[in-house]
Amino acid sequence: MVGRKNKRMIVLFLIPAIFIYVMVFIYPVFRTFIMSFFAVEAIEQPFYQWTFAGLDNYIGLFGIDLFNRSVTNYLTLWFVGGIAVLFLGMVYAVILTSGVRLKRFWRAVIYLPNVISAIALGTMWINYVFRDIDGLFDRAVNLMGGQTPVMWTGPYMGLWSLLIAYCFGMVGYIMLTFISGIEKISDEYYESASIEGANIFHKFFFITLPLIRGVVRSNIVIWTVSLGTGVFAWSFMFSPNNLTLPFTMPPNYMREIIFGGRGSAVIQRDSGSAAAVGILMALLVVVISVAASLITRRDDVEM
């Protein structure tokens, strides 16, 4: 039993944390939601200067090519990149939990991009990997007899290059989560399967995969949530001064219409529509996360 005095102390200690949480999380979310239904030019404008606009901000957004493209870019990156990251993360995890030599070394190396800033990684990809003619990828294509320049950061390949670079930085994190799940599986399952003549693929599909279904679900949610915010810096790196069609993501579009352009200083600001972008993004992440949970929830196995 917690005494009345102790309860008071708990409440007292919780107040600062709750206050900060309300001020830096609940209040901005609430304000953004409300703002999305108003015509607001500057984000710092007081409420009395807002004009009610109903759903106009939401409807208007879907009439803007650049915003629509940003959503398409985001969904492409989420779907294709998600499959690639989950697949590679799982393959690495299976390899590293299979008794491979220098396991810790490989694990650290694969995880390394996660501790390097997106700016440094982006610079590496843009200037040394994707560079036309003498970049790493063009040289590799040349060696294989392909035609160069491939124009990795141009209008056709741009999104796919961004996808490759972003996924490269995410695989390590996803891999570690899979490793933690796989390592919880008892060796007895594998030993029994070996005695029954199961090969490495049988073991993966009939033991490992069913037993890490929950980890897959967690990783889909992690991928979805991290993409929503993490892709901003990557888009910025690939298109540092202006928004461009292959690289623009919803958060970047949102930033542009809140604070104005990076080149021109006279872009019409529209914080109301930017708030609508934020709400739509949040809804998208919630819907995807819930869907992922529902799809992978069935047949969870107790280990």
Binding site: D65, L66, P155, N242, L245, S264, V266, I267, Q268
Partner: peptide, 23 residues
């Protein structure tokens, strides 16, 4: 005259110019 002669005042137009030119 102002920056980019106004070509960057609307991000929708700016992005279309960049895309078309690069193509």
């Amino acid at each position: 005259f102002p920056w980019a002669a106004g070509a960057e005042d609307d991000p929708n137009i700016t992005a279309a110019i960049i895309e078309g030119f690069q193509r």
